[in-house]
């Protein structure tokens, strides 16, 4: 009888531990698989300055997450940053002349790519490059611009 209650306790403990692991993965971590599954296509874009964009950053359309940044490299000819993104296959009808800009969530939040759809009838396909891109806002440049404007106004 003593042995039986011991087995029950051990079984209870193991189940509790496994339940805790499940709670951690499903309740605490986001099983957000948008853009990381196999059913995706890749596009690239060249940016003057990517600011704080990172591998794994979100790619959004109208604020909805549709993909993620997979790789960031430097183009050896143009010296610009080439950002590789994967987009979920279900959004395969984005116009070819869609533009990408690097935006910031909140004032100091994480940076992400926002896509703005264009008007051409042909859709983006695997491997296409975004023609129109807008760099990240760098706060220092902005302040510099502001100060030089102030200086010219006072003259």
């Amino acid at each position: 009888m003593v042995n039986r209650s011991l087995e029950v306790l051990v079984g209870f403990f193991i189940c509790l531990g496994i339940a805790a692991i499940f709670v951690l993965t499903f309740r605490v971590a986001s099983l957000d698989t948008v853009g990381s599954g196999t059913d995706t296509y890749r596009i690239t874009g060249q940016f003057q300055n990517i600011g704080g964009l990172k591998q794994g950053s979100a790619v959004t359309l109208a604020g909805v997450r549709i993909g993620r940044v997979t790789q960031i490299s430097i183009d050896p000819h143009t010296f610009q940053a080439t950002v590789h993104m994967t987009i979920d296959r279900q959004y395969d009808n984005l116009p070819e002349d869609s533009s990408a800009s690097i935006l910031t969530a909140g004032l100091l939040g994480e940076q992400y790519i926002g896509l703005t759809p264009g008007g051409m009838p042909e859709p983006l396909t695997d491997g296409s490059e975004l023609m129109l891109t807008q760099s990240a806002l760098v706060l220092e440049n902005l302040i510099g611009q502001f100060l030089s404007n102030m200086a010219t106004q006072q003259e």
């Binding site: 403990f13 193991i14 509790l16 531990g17 496994i18 805790a20 692991i21 709670v23 951690l24 605490v28």
Partner: peptide, 13 residues
Amino acid sequence: LISMPLLSAIFSV
């Protein structure tokens, strides 16, 4: 070896 990760998960939760 078995108990430690389970206890750690319970602690975290």
